[in-house]
């Protein structure tokens, strides 16, 4: 069974699931909001051959058994804690932390292919500090505009990287949101050195077995790095991405 984890407002995940279902594939979409209201969760670690066993029983009778899941598209950015929204702050914080830990452990321990496995920074996958991404991109040979970030600057570093790329690019620069699957960039006309740089970048930030988006400002031959995201625009990747992602998730 293919499992798609996402918030309700993720059109990209729904697009992917819709295509899979249209092809007759067994695909369960589990919105974070629904996962917040289960009947029961069971998560056992250690013991026996299987290092972890997770069973989630939903209120409609659906049982999500980790052992029967064959592939997971994970775009869950927040722990499924909606049921605690009206609890006292301390209890809500505690419950959210527990559910974050549960989600992290569950998705990390699944033995089937998962894109993406969670990281301590983000449940949806690699989301390093943007400046770290910038440094990794620079070390990977990608073109990176000098970035200035200081305590007096109001920018979030992501905006600072974008601003730097924009300032360094000419007025004719065009934006490209490149979807990268397992280190391979899926965008047209990507120069070989950029593709190699992307592969190195993915490796450097622990995304070589992940689905991420990388932003560029392209000015002629110059592909200037402008940021990364663990939630790429899947629809932009079209049918090619759909097929490659299915394969990465172990689907035939």
């Amino acid at each position: 069974m293919l499992l798609v984890l996402c918030p309700l407002n993720d059109p990209h995940a729904l697009w992917f699931a819709g295509r899979a279902r249209a092809e007759g594939r067994p695909c369960t979409v589990l919105p974070t909001e629904k996962l917040s209201f289960p009947r029961r969760r069971s998560h056992r670690l250690g013991g026996g051959e299987s290092q972890a066993r997770t069973v989630i029983e939903l209120t409609d009778g659906t049982v999500v058994d980790g052992a029967r899941v064959t592939g997971v598209l994970n775009r869950m950015i927040a722990p499924p804690a909606d049921a605690w929204r009206h609890a006292a702050e301390t209890e809500r914080t505690y419950a959210t932390a527990e559910l974050h830990a549960f989600s992290l452990s569950w998705l990390s321990a699944l033995r089937c292919p998962v894109r993406n496995r969670p990281t301590p920074q983000c449940l949806a996958g690699p989301a390093p500090d943007t400046l770290r991404s910038w440094a990794a991109a620079h070390a990977s040979g990608l073109s990176c505009a000098p970035v200035r970030v200081g305590t007096a600057d109001p920018w979030h570093p992501a905006a600072a990287v974008l601003a730097a790329a924009s300032r360094a690019s000419g007025p004719s620069a065009r934006p490209v949101h490149a979807v990268c699957l397992d280190g391979t960039v899926l965008a047209p006309d990507v120069p070989a050195r950029v593709a190699a740089g992307v592969a190195a970048l993915c490796s450097a930030i622990g995304a070589d077995r992940c689905l991420i988006g990388i932003d560029f400002l392209v000015d002629g031959e110059d592909w200037r790095f402008a940021g990364t995201s663990p939630l790429p625009d899947l629809r932009a990747g079209g049918h090619r991405l759909y097929r490659l992602l299915l394969r990465a998730l172990g689907q035939r």
Binding site: Q121, D129, T228
Partner: peptide, 15 residues
Amino acid sequence: ELPPAGPPGPGPLGG
């Protein structure tokens, strides 16, 4: 009204 405890730390989703 994003969840009270989203992904911790900075990054593309941090803001």
